[in-house]
Design a protein around this nucleic acid. Structure first.
Lengths: 193, 193
DNA sequence: ATAATTTTGAAACGTTCATTTCATTTAAAA
DNA sequence: TTTTAAATGAAATGAACGTTTCAAAATTAT
């Protein structure tokens, strides 16, 4: 029967992610993707349909990679404090390792495309719901453990933390000073205790 | 002698700002700018040199507009608390009035172009320095007035506030609930007292 | 009115854009 | 070995990109 797909889809997505992350959606051309993936133009269209479709797959790929990291970090945490700190530490590490100042691809995409592309808007709404649910869960547990205060509801703190992470990622584009960023994170988390 | 420039440069910049803000740098075409400004292609190149150059002027225009608002807000404040609250209120109003979810143009541009265009990187570094200096000044005064605590230096709090504002602007792209955002701002500011 | 000089309009520049086409090659199943 | 369908390569599609060109129109000071 037919020849089967020879290239490794994950590898291709990984390479496409790199270039989309670096240049953004509008800044990335099909030629960039052909060069980066060393796949044929036709193969890209056969396998992904369109540039936008490929980008949406790339976004999900990037998202699930991060979700895995977060979930593992949370799972390995003994309590809510550790879980929250792990999340911020993972973000800090990404900032410090991001030598070419690309920032977070999801934050970048939100700022570039939410008001232009409905499919991206819907992706970002789901992403926000998921992130806030995760954060709310942790905060709620922390409040039950009596390590976090009850001055605000878990839901309110979750939005605050979600907003703070986005701010951290934006700040981390230009500011890569480890001490400054650690202090910033400490300040963000102080309100919980 | 010569014919003088007939069009109003500020009006043109204002219209160019609208379209750049809406579509981003890479998403805006020269044709978009011709249509938006109703200026001739040649006139744009005569007066602004290039798309990038025009964008840089637009950025400064947008920045100075905001700086004016901030400065007025601060000048009209009786104390540091009011000054900080005014800054966050101005941002909140922008979010609530931003019906098409464009976000802050400076934040968007930072995420789109800092890693691609040196002139933008340098603009953003200066913008950050200016913003942080302004915030540090206010926090310092608040600490002198004994309404803000000394758990962190004014400089550290300034970076925290700068980061929080960027987070607020990113959050405001999708979340336009007045109560939620006011609560978020309260949470951000709580750490100062 | 004349001279000076910029704005303007319209067309064209060469390049790049995302996407399509299609004949050829490839490899697995029959 | 033949069949089958996907992967591939290379070229072409037409539209859009940022930018340039230049003659014609417009406006001001002489």
């Amino acid at each position: 029967m037919p020849k089967t797909e020879t290239f490794n889809r994950k590898e291709v997505l990984q390479k496409a992610t790199q270039i989309f992350h670096k240049k953004g959606y509008n800044g990335t051309s099909m030629q960039d993707l052909v060069d980066a993936t060393s796949l044929n133009r036709s193969s890209i269209y056969n396998s992904f349909g369109s540039k936008l479709n490929m980008f949406l797959e790339v976004l999900s790929f990037y998202q699930s990679y991060h979700n895995t990291n977060f979930s593992q970090g949370i799972a390995n945490s003994y309590n809510a404090t550790e879980a929250i700190e792990t999340i911020f530490e993972l973000n800090l590490n990404e900032i410090l390792n991001d030598e070419d100042r690309k920032g977070c691809m999801i934050v970048n995409c939100k700022s570039e495309m939410v008001n232009q592309e409905p499919s991206i808007k819907s992706f970002m709404e789901k992403n926000q719901d998921r992130m806030i649910a995760m954060l709310e869960d942790i905060v709620y547990k922390g409040q039950m453990e009596k390590v976090f205060n009850h001055k605000q509801t878990a839901s309110q703190y979750a939005l605050y933390l979600f907003s703070s992470i986005q701010g951290l990622r934006m700040t981390g584009i230009l500011n890569k000073n480890n001490e400054d960023l650690k202090n910033l994170i400490n300040t963000v988390l102080k309100v919980l205790y």
